[in-house]
Design a protein around this nucleic acid. Sequence first.
DNA 1: CTGAAAGCGCTTACAG
DNA 2: CTGAAAGCGCTTACAG
Lengths: 333, 333
Amino acid sequence: MIKTISDISRMAGVAKSTVSRYLNGGPVSEKTRRKIEHIIKEQNYVPNTFAQSLKAKKTNFIGTVVPRLDSFATSQTLIGIDEALRSNHYQMLISNTSQDMDREIEAIYDFARQKISGIILLAAQVTEAHLTAIKQIDIPVILVGQKNDQIHSLIHDDKQAGRLMGRHVLSKGHRKIVYLGVTEKDEAVGIRRKEGIEEALAACPDCEASYLETSFKMSDAVLTASRLLEETRPSIIVCATDNIALGVIKAAHLKGIRIPEELSVTGFGGYDITEIIHPALTTVKYHYYEAGKKAADNIIQLVNEKPVDKLTLMDVELIERESVDNLLSNPLL
Amino acid sequence: MIKTISDISRMAGVAKSTVSRYLNGGPVSEKTRRKIEHIIKEQNYVPNTFAQSLKAKKTNFIGTVVPRLDSFATSQTLIGIDEALRSNHYQMLISNTSQDMDREIEAIYDFARQKISGIILLAAQVTEAHLTAIKQIDIPVILVGQKNDQIHSLIHDDKQAGRLMGRHVLSKGHRKIVYLGVTEKDEAVGIRRKEGIEEALAACPDCEASYLETSFKMSDAVLTASRLLEETRPSIIVCATDNIALGVIKAAHLKGIRIPEELSVTGFGGYDITEIIHPALTTVKYHYYEAGKKAADNIIQLVNEKPVDKLTLMDVELIERESVDNLLSNPLL
DNA sequence: CTGAAAGCGCTTACAG
DNA sequence: CTGAAAGCGCTTACAG
């Protein structure tokens, strides 16, 4: 049923090596070229990639390890990766780990077993186990979203994002501020973003700022915010992610608190949905799609043993919308 | 650097075939088993899957073709597929086509070239080119989300979804209804869902129902709804998808129309976000995750030449929330 | 430009 | 239980 290179060579009356040369753009006379071309078309022949890979000792697969598939950030990053990979004739392989760190490690070894050429790792944390695995497999790896001295990394400028947001909040006259953050185990989101905020708020001695922690889940944010709003009433809640902001807005709605008149809210990420909800959310936009493209470009460079900066930093951008009240122009306050 | 089965066999002082047998659970004496095991651990040996596949003539890859990565429906379905595949030791390969039909066809042939064992196709339309490709590659295929007589299909019960929604709308006293649908090229969403609605509304002779079309994009829905709301004021807009509903809600907010007091809105899909927004959206929930699991189970059956129903139908479920006003209990109307 | 041969890393009958 | 050999479908020097 399925034709091999031998079948084609026999039918064309040439040697296997000649067919192989034709396939790989080697020197073939015009006459044999036409003969082979014809037979291949006619037989609908496609080379067996496994045999090819077995010989060539490498594949055109790039593996991507993602903690979850159902997140805006992941989707956009993957689309960017896929786009760049495809135009360079690489194939993207995705391994979803469902936030299970053991599965991340496993995925790395699995990819190695499949002789993929490079790995793009979207991880929230980098542990010793990650480092060991990466060292052992001896395959180029790019870490996206987090930074590690021992691995090529691509990150969004979280600290700058925090600064931009912090300054913006101050510029709108907010003085009683709650920052709703996440675990410090996630260095980028839990530490860097917060540092940026703190740095900006340090410029305001008379500010009353407090820091709280919740999880990445919207539903948890709803609960945390509900409790918070019962005890105190800040003028603004600065949330570590857009999802958390969505949860806070929900909690406010449930309590009948109007946004932004009675409470301002902001996020980080720039998810599509933040523009659609009402009021539209003020946030810092991350360029996930571009980050994916860049990560893919970088891994291709590494695979081909070309130099790549140890650290790539992606710009961020404040998007001012409706969820932040301007207290300075409000004569009532 | 990288060890092969020959290296291992030499180091263990046995034949390659014995190592292979050990690897594949064949009969090996306790003594040699231990020897081999030890060497493999020590050398960190992993078999080359290409060589394995080359011999075995098949892979454990299942290819999934998706029109887009950044949609709730796709993500959930993929997660389900991945979950089921993983627990059966298959690997999911994803090909994103960015809604480009040519790329869908290409993806099918690409997968065939890579000798993947089966294909799960999430397509909005099935054309002759699809059918030809599927026939030619001679690999099991499962179509998800659309139905086709010539292919194993798994669909959500769109017609029933439409019926449920239609009846619900009537039961809440709505009589002036606009259905905001999509192109009939998408049979499931464009035709079946609408038919269900029509069927339900047919039970209400004094209803004033009109049918409009928009695209799947939120931004288009915002525009279409804005125009619509300038010309007429239905009591409810029934949207063909949750995303369209989100767009309609946005348009209403922009016009200062209150939901549901002045305008009711519904969707289809049951996206997570519909629960978080305010007011929470009444919708028909589709079980994407379960559909993905089922599709994966089915493709595995087909790959192993076991029988599978030509058509699998997934249940849907009406979720009543806050975006639909109950006109019957409102004394003012 | 073209062909014969060796080999990529495995598995699978076939003997023993 | 174990080993030697053939072969999966390609590619790559090496001759010619």
